[in-house]
Amino acid sequence: TSIVNVSSSLNVRSSASTSSKVIGSLSGNTKVTIVGEEGAFYKIEYKGSHGYVAKEYI
Rank of each mutant, 00 (worst) to 15 (best):
S15M: 10
G51W: 03
Y46E: 01
R13I: 05
V6T: 12
G36L: 04
K31R: 13
S14G: 08
Y57L: 10
V22M: 06
S2Q: 12
A16P: 14
R13E: 02
V32L: 08
I3R: 09
K21Q: 11
G36K: 04
I34D: 01
K31G: 06
T18P: 14
E56T: 08
E37V: 09
N29F: 14
V53R: 00
G51R: 02
V4Y: 05
N11T: 14
E56I: 14
I23C: 05
N29M: 12
S19C: 14
L26R: 01
I44N: 00
I3K: 08
S20C: 05
S49A: 12
V6M: 09
A54F: 12
I58M: 07
S49I: 12
S2N: 11
S8T: 14
S49L: 10
A40E: 14
A16T: 05
S25M: 14
S49Y: 08
S17D: 11
T30V: 11
I34F: 03
E56W: 09
I3V: 12
V32Q: 01
S27P: 15
V6A: 09
R13W: 15
I44F: 05
S9I: 13
V35E: 03
V6W: 06
S2H: 15
I58C: 06
Y57W: 09
S27Q: 13
V6H: 10
I44D: 00
V53T: 01
L10I: 15
T33H: 09
L26F: 05
E45G: 04
S14Q: 14
G48V: 03
S8H: 15
T30S: 11
Y52E: 00
S14P: 03
I3T: 10
K43V: 10
A40P: 09
S27V: 11
I34W: 04
V6R: 07
A16D: 02
L10K: 04
K21H: 10
T1P: 11
A54P: 15
S20Q: 02
G48E: 07
S20F: 06
G36S: 07
V22R: 05
A54Y: 11
H50Y: 15
L10D: 03
G36F: 03
S8L: 11
G28W: 14
V35I: 14
I58R: 03
K55F: 03
N11P: 15
L10C: 15
V12G: 01
K31C: 14
E38F: 07
K43N: 02
E38P: 01
G24D: 03
